[in-house]
Design a protein around this nucleic acid. Structure first.
Lengths: 227, 227
DNA sequence: GTCTATATACGGATAGAC
DNA sequence: GTCTATCCGTATATAGAC
């Protein structure tokens, strides 16, 4: 599967994301007509991401957002209770999609090498399809409420542990060379992270996500692979 | 040279950093007694870093800062003209120290492998000695004025180019395997970056900066080294 | 469902006493 | 050098008209 196929199969579009958010927050959203809600959520999140990723969530005023989203100040508050609420919604949704996609794509039957390739692929493809979301998540994690921040840390740790466990498994079956698996997982995460934190750099150099993936895999296997 | 020796030799202490800042901003700082200025700058920067790295520079109010630094609101403005000014001061100083240290430590006579080891070492040691500064720099780069942001991007690019050029050199002299040098440099940067962006993670696992450095070098050489 | 107008609080920054 | 008191703009959030 390459990135284009992944996109089709997973259907990660602005619209589908907003629909999910709508379904999860039906109670707190005052507007009731589904079509209207989804259309406006798209405008709100798209605008919020653009402004916040340029000058930070705290630096974005509700007036900025209202202007860019094309909705009045008053109308915005029909979709969320407060600015913090908006932040939590965005962060929560990003995590939920990662978890769901991992569950859908991850094959526990395959061997360690296949698993490692898959998990690197999923992380990269997701962070490509939702790059502004991933960037936003990382940069604004510190502004979350304590409870939400705890969830963010837990989610990040568990995804790193997943990678470390796969490496360990490969070492036990003799597929990989024996190296510090926790540290190896950390470095892999660092490289995955760079794809969405420094996304512009790679765009400028015309590096595609598939090229980046191949390069990471080569790099990782030079270290972990048997000679 | 290990990290402890580096620290002694380079003398990167809060006090020495603040003295440098004082000397560079003598004109705009209204207080004239050097000792007082340095003592208060230490309090100000230390407090600013603590607050901003927890809730962002925009999220830090001048009242927060005044309280944490132990100086009144009015007194703060004797040391910088505006909040933005404070931001620029911090960012500029971090870059200046990196540039100076690179110039001091970098030996153009040595071969590519030594150069690569040195540049990884300097970056790691500096980001260890000034971790809050590096973290702050990355997270708040987007809040800089256009001119300052341009400088930040240029500085980041040139340090990546330095690494890429070293790899290229090593490939030309036959020390390294031929691989995409720009991409290799990117991945190395990503791993260096992780040391200060996810510093707490490594502290929790009791990974020292020297251990991290050794691990990166092993990793990189598995890829670049001749078999 | 969406708007405009506004309540209320908090932000950065300064003036002037000590 | 440092403080307190204050100016004034802008922030979030809400009320109520349409």
């Amino acid at each position: 599967m390459n990135y284009a196929e992944f996109q089709k199969q997973m259907n990660i579009t602005k619209k589908s994301i907003c629909k999910e958010i709508y379904l999860q927050n039906r109670d707190s959203i005052r507007i009731k007509k589904e079509e209207t809600v989804i259309r406006n959520l798209e405008k709100i999140f798209s605008a919020a991401m653009k402004i916040a990723n340029r000058k930070g969530f705290q630096g974005m005023s509700m007036r900025d957002l209202s202007k860019k989203a094309g909705l009045s100040l008053g109308a915005l508050y029909a979709y969320f209770a407060s600015k913090d609420d908006l932040l939590n919604m965005m962060q929560h949704q990003r995590r939920a999609i990662v978890i769901r996609t991992l569950e859908e794509c991850f094959d526990t039957e395959s061997d360690a090498l296949e698993k490692l390739e898959t998990i690197i692929q999923i992380h990269l493809y997701l962070s490509e399809a939702m790059q502004p979301w991933f960037y936003f998540s990382f940069m604004e994690a510190k502004n979350l409420s304590k409870a939400q921040r705890g969830k963010a840390v837990a989610s990040s740790r568990s995804s790193e542990k997943l990678i470390a466990d796969i490496i360990k498994e490969g070492q036990e079956t003799g597929q990989f060379r024996v190296q510090d698996h926790a540290m190896s997982a950390s470095l892999i995460k660092a490289m995955l992270q760079d794809w969405y934190l420094n996304h512009r750099k790679y765009a400028r150099r015309k590096v595609s996500v598939d090229q980046y993936m191949d390069f990471i895999l080569e790099y990782v296997m030079a270290f972990l692979g048997k000679k």
